[in-house]
Amino acid sequence: MKNRLFYFIPYSLWLILFVGAPIILMLGESFLSVSHHFTFANYQDFLGSGTYLRMMFNSVWYAFLITLITLIVSFPTALFLSNLKYKQFWLLLIILPTWINLLLKTYAFIGLLSKDGSINHFIELLGFAPQQLLFTDASFILVAAYIEIPFMILPIFNSINEIDRSLINASYDLGATKWQTFRRVILPLSADGIRAGIQAVFIPSLSLFMITRLIGGNRVITLGTAIEEHFLVTQNWGLGSTIGVVLIIAMIITMALTRERKKRGRK
């Protein structure tokens, strides 16, 4: 094909300018001091001071909790959905909220969780004193999990939906109980979906920064919040890029751990 080169010009420009260059620039920037000299100080700052390491572990811990909660809630949903009659339609309804701007959904929770918000009204109706709900760690995890749920349900649903029905019937015919069928047939066969879901939820959970600001009230600091802070508030791009590099490494590790395994047992 002669016009192959022609096809490639805009696309490779994009690859070089917007995929390659920014990442390399960020890596370079992480070795620059505020006065633009080469330095390892940013990495020393990050690894040397307890603050940043603690922030990183906190961020990973929160992301882990968010992923765990989403997984626990989403797996049964995906499983039950796959048994419904008009499952594609119901799945579309699950995906629909992801088309609504993230900011709007977060904003809804400000109204629901605030001091004299609707949930506190409900708590008062039950006869309890109103609680401080907004600006707590729990509210951050709750809202983040709410936003991530569809991204977990979708891949798990797809993998469950692909399971050959006759495998499940065979399992029952051979005398397995419901629980055994679930443990030995459905769960292993949906493992790839679970891995994809974990990947889709864990990486964004490390970097969410607007939810920490609006719902967590600056109490929760994730890697994403720290990057935003250094880039847009304190203007220390070097340190911000260093945290960015750490986030990229965390992302690569997550992807390596959750990538699709080769099918075993095909002898």
Binding site: F18, L25, P204, E228, L247
Partner: peptide, 11 residues
Amino acid sequence: PDVIIGASFLI
């Protein structure tokens, strides 16, 4: 992550 895309584009 969006933050990485945003920050690196800003640079």
